[in-house]
Amino acid sequence: MRDFLELAVSATASGCVYALVALAYLVMTRPTGIINFAVGEWAAVAAFGGFLTLTHAEWPYAAGIAAVTAAMFAVGWATERLTVRPLVERGAPVLAPILALLGMLVVFRELISVGFGPDPRPLPQAFGFGRLEIGLVAGSYQSFFTIGVVLGLFALTWWFFERTLAGRAFEAVAIDRRAAALMGIDLSRVTALSFAGGAAIAGVAGLLVAPNTSAHYMMGLPLAVQGFTALVIGGVGRVEGALVGGLILAFAEQLTVRYAPVPPGLAMGVPLVLLILFLLVRPTGLLAAREARA
């Protein structure tokens, strides 16, 4: 039982990171239909931002996190302005910005590689390295911190989409882009904001995971794949879907490694199997999108 509860904390923390990357995808995909695989690289950029502010410059933790998240918001905004908008304005098919963003993935990774070199860089843990035990439930300080921050962010995102006018505008664009434009919603502003928000969310994911893994130039792609799988599992329709998808993926991964009687190498195939299963059986994910009301 102790093992299982320990594992539950670890899987929840990992699932929260996957969920955050899935949310970054979702925030951009819902209103624009564009899947941006560069989210993993955004997480890596933020992780290196965290290295600069928290490790190198030794800023207070909250200040460093806030500064990097704000910078990532600007990076997302600039990425949309420079790579997506010119293509959309020229009437390019939806595949064009996806390919351009794949190109940006390489640009971000190489910029990190050139700027910081190949060595992994350390980031401090929010409350240092330690173990918190609450009865039988036990985990690292960083795991509990990650879970708390991610749940808070999901609550905030849900509130934004459900309770604010700007969020409703996003939802309207997601449901019917043309009708939303006819109602006076500024599509280009929504698109720019969705990329800026996506980059900020991906950045927080990078800042939460890097204290465990370190910041390194190859960290982006695995995060992008894990987040995408979580997105497929949960569905692109609802904010809650990203969270559910992330948690299912992480629990499936870690319970298989810990308890399934399979060779250690095969357990790594679990995310792939889940991805294929959901694409075949339930391509809309577990939580379906809200339909337009008549």
Binding site: D3, E6, L7, S10, A11, A13, S14, V17, Y18, V209, N212, T213, M218, M219, L221, P222, L223, V225, Q226, E253, Q254, L255, V257, R258, P264
Partner: peptide, 12 residues
């Protein structure tokens, strides 16, 4: 590669 934790492996 790309794992976010090694706790399940180390539990084993």
């Amino acid at each position: 590669r790309g794992a976010t934790t090694a706790e399940p492996q180390m539990q084993k």
